[in-house]
């Protein structure tokens, strides 16, 4: 963030999310610098949707994003590996039984 008066510093960083078309999630595509949310949307539009890439935009100050710690990836994500019963293919159903 600039000191708001002197120095000509660069603007803060924003993360940009684009919805490619109706029905899809917004997806992270990159970032822009902007002094405020409104111009961040304009900058995101002028940078990331020049080739019809989107129908909707989100911008979020990069500083507002909390990311999980890669060191903790093991404890966060590996326990899910053993929960195979959450997947439909886990269950044995005879082929003759339909619509299930």
């Amino acid at each position: 963030m600039s000191d708001g008066g002197q120095g000509g510093h660069d603007w803060p960083l924003w993360e940009v999310f684009v919805r490619a078309k109706g029905g899809l999630n917004h997806r992270h595509v990159g970032s822009v610098h902007a002094p405020d949310a409104e111009l961040a949307i304009r900058h995101a539009r002028d940078t990331y949707t020049r080739r019809l890439e989107g129908v909707s935009l989100w911008v979020v100050p990069s500083s507002a994003i909390t990311a999980s710690d890669p060191e903790a990836a093991g404890e966060l994500f590996e326990p899910a590996e053993s929960k195979v019963y959450r997947h439909p293919t886990f269950y044995d159903i005879p082929d003759v039984v339909k619509h299930i």
Binding site: M1, S2, D3, G4, G5, Q6, G7, G8, H9, D10, W11, P35, D36, L39
Partner: peptide, 18 residues
């Protein structure tokens, strides 16, 4: 970059005021 300094400052100052 130098000629743009006052523009970057102005927008940052405007946001700080807001």
């Amino acid at each position: 970059w130098d000629d743009g300094a006052w523009v970057r400052d102005a927008a940052a100052a405007h946001e700080a005021k807001r």
